[in-house]
Design a protein around this nucleic acid. Structure first.
Length: 880
RNA sequence: GCGUCUUUAGCUCAGUUGGUAGAGCACUACCUUGACGUGGUAGGGGUCACAGGUUCGAGUCCUGUAGGACGCACCA
């Protein structure tokens, strides 16, 4: 097969993916003798376009999945997309807004038709982009979180929870977004610090004829219309004379009691707190405790309602301004201070949320939360990276509040509750009730609200394989082996999946959870369209190839919480892909004449033994790191091995062997063999380039690399001694290159090496050393006596002395200076080691192996020291 | 306020159970070496935030201080 001169991924990626998918390689079996590996894709929003976050998810999960598949697991990666309630509805509402229309102009049915159209349009986009990333998802099992069967599952869950008493309908204070016009759960509200003011307002004591008053401090004067009490701390002496009295709320002229509650902080503000149970969560609690009325003064559109006397119809901001003016005029406004406060905003649209009293559906969480905590504590579920998220998870679950699951939207799973048209009694059931109501009426209407998107998402691990049907797939693939997701949705999603999994399957939904980092720009800023710092994965893959992006992301997927991504770093990794391409070209163009019967366990040449040993050592590390999901280490290990061992040393050393008939057959085989095995190791992270090159390798042993076996380390092929020896050879070459570089010697020259220990080794590698160190000849001597040292540049490494006759280059003073520098370094090492060994405490308390090691070092450094000194003395005699 | 994490070379980060600090990028010099200039070779560059403590020995363990990030809860 001819390979193009440069790495050009655009030429083969799409075709390879098509081939994989059409041959059904991604599909796992419902029933199989093989062990299962299952994982669900966190379903992307149907309306979203692929961004770097997706690219990271797909890279990590696909890498893990591909390796497991290669390891022989019956592997399924469940594909799906999310209907994403508010987000999707907003997309369509925005489209309508351009025509000056609202969803109410269309009506529920027509509006939903439109949303489905949008869904169908976008679905193809996001799934194709997902394919483009190389994701080996089981598309045959693809689901949509609002498909028919999913709805069945959702209804069934709702009804079961209701029957167990875990779902209830209640009138409560909830966070309301007036823009989205829906209730939100606690998690969908973001608290941001903001600048505000603290207003001090006088409330006159009833019956005092405006002679007596209390001053309350508030950040939201417009809510005073809904005040139903004023609270003071019972221990506060300043207000003892007012206990039992009432004050008059301005404008509405309502008399409300002064109540006593320890909640009030005497030191803050005036020590006097106005209570508005209808528009503040703390006040609501106090109101409940003291049996106060709850008065709502703001409606669902964020406007003042009919309770708001002369302010009816104004929005809250207008109302505040007007109220302040009037308070000022009447002398009731004491003062205004700047005040740093927190503003609660809708996480979706950033509208300020209003606490509102309304009827909603809630799920009781405490019981399920306890089980969910236990599942992690008992390690039925293990978190990766270890030791990071457990605390956060426990804390949230320990303090969990009931989950408000109803949303006043149209797009989503409609709540399976039917109300009698006559008496308003409701029936909870999976289907429209057939029986007549207790009141005798037959007509029902379904609840208008839908469920929080995360309600259905929480069912994903068991609905994906078929629940509520008891399918074979469900039996095989539940619990999932792994859940992989961003830590930002640990509460939204992970915790809830665990709770629902335990509740409905009586088992954890997955055995391990792997959290990945957030992608940021190179400065650590969040990527956002408004900031203009977005790196589009599709632009990147067009330019550098999918494998480049995947490898970059994998290299950065470490334990860190942030990934700072720059195009620069991506470009760097594209060089690695090119390196693989180029080295492959070399290996493959030299394939002709390889020894077909070669057996890697019976190699003749040390160089070939060495690289096979290294391959197996690296394979061991890669597998170990893969097992604990440290993809950054996997990538780094592969990068270093391929570039700095296979290319820099093995390929270079192999050249003389390839040109020698005696060694050519074996060396060519090993070249191809290591190439093929490397491709397999690399395939999970960089699937396309490895598949492409695999087919070009004559040793290819499967129709696709995807289904080939992932390499296992063969320990009998690891030769640590040889690996260490080879380090010495590398050192030798480096030292010679170093001297030559310093003296500017470019020509081939002669070198004498004195070493009793390594003479055989150096002779074994004679040819390659000559080539890499650019030498004419290398002469190996057992001892230095037979060597004429005059005019030699000298280098010393443990058990090896190097002499380079170079009289015409040598500058004796310069050379002495160089060696003295070396000596200084060695002496520093020597000192440290000596002081250790002189230290009685060290000798007494350190482990024997450590002491031995130090002694070895001492011997080595002493020897270097002696040799360097003698070299310097010799040179000095030349000087004099 | 509480919790989790973080501070190592100019930048981005590794650093296993404590045993003399590493990589990539960037930088400097040299090399038009038949796989690759998207390359090669050599090199410079670090009081491991600070202060204590444990230890024969601390980047690594403990305590505190100061930066930084995130999460949770908030005093109206």
């Amino acid at each position: 097969m001819d390979l193009s001169p440069k790495y050009a991924p655009q030429e083969f990626e799409k075709e390879i993916y098509r081939e994989w998918e059409s041959k059904g390689y991604f599909h796992g079996e419902d029933k199989s003798d093989k062990p299962q590996f299952s994982i669900v894709l966190p379903p992307p929003n149907v309306t979203g376009a692929l961004h770097m976050g997706h690219a990271l998810v797909l890279t990590i999960q696909d890498s893990i999945v591909r390796r497991k598949r290669m390891q022989g697991f019956n592997t399924v990666w469940f594909a799906g997309t999310d209907h994403a309630g508010i987000a999707t509805q907003m997309v369509v509402e925005r489209e309508l807004m351009k025509e000056g229309k609202s969803r109410h102009d269309l009506g529920r049915e027509k509006f939903l038709e439109k949303v489905w159209e949008v869904k169908d349009r976008h679905h193809g986009i996001i799934t194709n982009q997902t394919r483009q990333m190389g994701a080996s998802l089981d598309w045959e099992r693809e689901r949509f979180t609002l498909d028919h069967k999913f709805s069945k599952a959702v209804n069934s869950v709702f009804v079961k929870l209701y029957n167990k008493g875990l779902i209830y309908r209640g009138e409560r204070l909830i966070s309301w977004c007036s823009r989205c016009s829906t209730a939100l759960s606690d998690l969908e509200v973001e608290m941001n610090p903001g600048k505000g003011k603290l207003y001090y307002i006088k409330y006159f004591v009833a019956g005092s004829n405006c002679s007596e008053f209390v001053t309350v401090a508030t950040t939201r004067p417009e809510t005073l219309l809904g005040d139903t009490a004023v609270a003071v701390n019972p221990n506060d002496d300043r207000f003892k004379h007012l206990h039992g009295k009432k004050v008059v709320i301005p404008f509405v002229e309502r008399e409300v009691p002064i109540i006593l509650d320890e909640y009030v902080d005497m030191a803050f503000g005036t020590g006097c707190l106005k209570i508005t149970p209808g528009h503040d969560f703390n006040d609501y609690e106090i109101g409940k405790k003291h049996g106060l009325d709850t008065i709502t003064v703001i409606d669902k559109n964020g406007k003042m309602n009919k309770e708001a006397v002369q302010f009816v119809g104004l929005n809250t901001k207008e109302a505040r301004e007007k109220i302040l003016v009037e308070l000022e005029n009447s002398g009731s406004l004491d003062k205004i201070e700047d005040y740093g406060t927190t503003v609660s905003k809708c996480s979706r649209c950033e509208t300020v949320v209003e606490p509102l009293l309304s009827h909603q559906w809630f799920i009781k969480m405490d019981g399920m939360a306890k089980r969910a905590i236990e599942a992690v504590k008992s390690e039925k579920i293990k978190f990766y990276p270890t030791g990071w998220w457990e605390e956060t998870y426990y804390r949230w679950l320990e303090n969990i509040r009931d989950w408000c699951v109803s949303r006043q939207l149209w797009w989503g799973h409609r709540i399976p509750v039917w109300y009698c048209n006559d008496c308003n009694e409701f029936v909870v059931g999976e289907f429209h009730p057939l029986k007549q109501c207790r009141c005798g009426c037959q007509d029902y209407h379904q609840d208008n609200d839908v469920l929080d998107t995360w309600f259905s998402a929480a069912l994903w691990p068991f609905v994906a394989p078929g629940w509520p049907e008891r399918t074979e797939a469900l039996k095989t693939f539940y619990p999932n082996a792994l859940m992989e997701t961003g830590f930002d949705i640990i509460f939204f999603w992970v915790a809830r999946m665990i709770m629902f999994g335990l509740e409905f399957m009586d088992d954890v939904p997955f055995k391990e959870v792997l959290y990945h980092a957030m992608i940021r720009d190179e400065k650590g800023q969040k990527m956002s369209k408004t900031k203009g710092n977005v790196i589009d994965p599709l632009v990147i893959t067009d330019k550098y190839g999918v494998d480049t992006l995947r490898f970059t992301l994998a290299s950065m997927a470490g334990r860190a919480r942030d990934i700072k991504l720059s195009e620069n770093s991506i470009e760097g990794y594209s060089h690695f892909m090119n390196k693989i391409w180029q080295a492959s070209k070399f290996a493959l163009s030299n394939a002709e004449g390889y020894d077909k019967k070669c057996d890697v366990s019976k190699l003749k040449y040390p160089l070939n033994k060495w690289i096979v040993s290294r391959l197996n050592s690296v394979t061991e590390i890669v597998n170990k790191k893969f097992d604990v999901y440290e993809l950054n280490d996997v990538s780094e290990t592969l990068y270093k091995f391929f570039w700095h061992e296979f290319c820099d040393w093995y390929i270079e050393f192999s050249k003389p062997l390839i040109n020698d008939e005696a060694s050519a057959g074996e060396t060519k085989y090993v070249l191809l063999y290591v190439h093929r095995e490397f491709l397999k190791l690399m395939h999970p992270i960089a699937p396309f380039i490895t598949e492409k090159l695999f087919h070009a390798n004559p040793l290819k042993d499967k129709e696709t690399i995807m289904l080939d076996a992932y390499p296992e380390s063969n320990k009998s092929l690891i030769n640590k001694e040889l690996e260490t020896d080879f380090d010495t050879v590398q050192e030798l070459v480096s030292n010679i290159r170093h001297i030559k570089s310093i003296y500017g010697i470019n020509a081939k020259n002669d070198v004498i090496v004195v070493s009793s220990k390594y003479s055989k080794l150096i002779n074994d590698f004679n040819g390659p050393i000559l080539k890499l160190a650019t030498l004419k000849s290398i002469k190996v001597e057992q001892d230095a006596k037979s060597v004429d040292l005059s005019g030699c540049i000298r280098a010393v490494l443990p058990d090896v002395e190097i002499y380079m006759p170079a009289k015409k280059f040598i500058e004796f003073d310069k050379e002495i200076e160089r060696l003295n520098k070396k000596l200084e370094l060695v002496n520093k090492d020597l000192c440290i080691t000596k002081s250790k060994l002189d230290n009685q405490g060290f000798l007494a308390k350190a482990g024997a192996d450590v002491v031995e090691k130090e002694k070895g070092k001492l011997a080595e450094f002493s020897k270097l020291d002696t040799e360097l000194r003698s070299a310097i003395t010799t040179l000095e005699t030349f000087l004099n």
